[in-house]
Design a protein around this nucleic acid. Sequence first.
DNA 1: CATCTTTTGAGAGTTACTCTCACTTGAGAG
DNA 2: CTCTCAAGTGAGAGTAACTCTCAAAAGATG
Lengths: 218, 218
Amino acid sequence: MSTPRSARPRPSDASPGSLEELVEAPMSLRERKKLKTRQALRREAFRLFAEQGWEATTVDQIAAAAEVSPATFFRYFPTKEDLVLTDEYDPLMAAAIRARPADEPFLTSAREVLVELVRRIAEQERTELYERMRLTASVPALRARMLDGTNQPTGMLLDLLTERAGLDAPTLELRITAAVVSATLTETSLYWADRGGRDDLADLLDRALRHLQELDRN
Amino acid sequence: MSTPRSARPRPSDASPGSLEELVEAPMSLRERKKLKTRQALRREAFRLFAEQGWEATTVDQIAAAAEVSPATFFRYFPTKEDLVLTDEYDPLMAAAIRARPADEPFLTSAREVLVELVRRIAEQERTELYERMRLTASVPALRARMLDGTNQPTGMLLDLLTERAGLDAPTLELRITAAVVSATLTETSLYWADRGGRDDLADLLDRALRHLQELDRN
DNA sequence: CATCTTTTGAGAGTTACTCTCACTTGAGAG
DNA sequence: CTCTCAAGTGAGAGTAACTCTCAAAAGATG
């Protein structure tokens, strides 16, 4: 749920937003190879994280496991953190939010979309995203980066807010709304890390966001 | 406003909470020397940051300017970030919050204390803290660390919350409250970075916190 | 003054990056 | 099918933030 806008300038453009792994589109051989490398890096990385933990796993090890040179690792992910924090759900979320009626209060939209996202994740028993959230919440370096204003979902939500309904300048209220949503997302990931269950998360999220809805001005 | 609970274990105990620089107490020669070194490191660091920027300034340079070995730098500050993020106002804030009536809604207490703190800072035309907040808000690495749950004021506030009124387990609502406060603090620092003015900050903060007060349950 | 403890400096080592340059390999043209 | 160009990769050197160890220096204490 976070597309870091990397602190440092990206070496390569590093893939548009990447529905790549989700949408089947005709790709050139080159693009397919890149995708395979990307997936291999992530797969091996998560495997090693699970085996040895975040800190004990070096970039060199990951690169070796994925059978690329260490330098290549950084061509795919600008930092070790980005390996975990860059995901492909952002564009889906953005699209889902845009699909909502424009006059609907923003937090309502956000709530619906988030709950839906959680539902889908819970459905497909894919553990990867689950593991990713667990890691994000438990590794300090990751948590820090995720929370960074530049890298967190708030940025995206803020963009959507300003884009929608022609909201002009980012006013203080606007930014607080975004911050609140971001805080809620943070809560979500913390909750996830603590309990590990995910049955009632949707409920909790639902409650929490309803809770915050009174703040909604847009 | 943040006393990082460092991700890594601190090498030395690195000074209790340090009212040291604010309170005049009889100190041994040893302690006085340590304090001097600490102050020298910070002073030279901020000077270099102002001259060359955060990234261009290396720990070695700072150590050299303060006339200690690079290794010694890390005995005083576990990371380069801590140099900026560790400050001495936390205990003051904590004391101020504790001094408030116990049955007062938490957000009211927080609001009063924060506004008071801002007022004081604005009063004394000392630019150091101001500069510190500017840095914190503008350097990605700093912003990220400051926002980290482990390092941010939320931790302290959370502790105070649980300690006060015998609030037992950290419930979701509780943590959301903390997160909201944290988000507000974030907003504050972002605002500070953008505008640079500090006349109306107290007003804005006041408004924002009043705004959030409806959420208050405790 | 002598001893004990804390603090420091020197230096070597690790890891996350960055940069450059030469090599390989897919893409597209003829 | 091949030639050319551009994109992607590997090797290797370099930097900066740390970490660790060990011995020397210096304050505290009797």
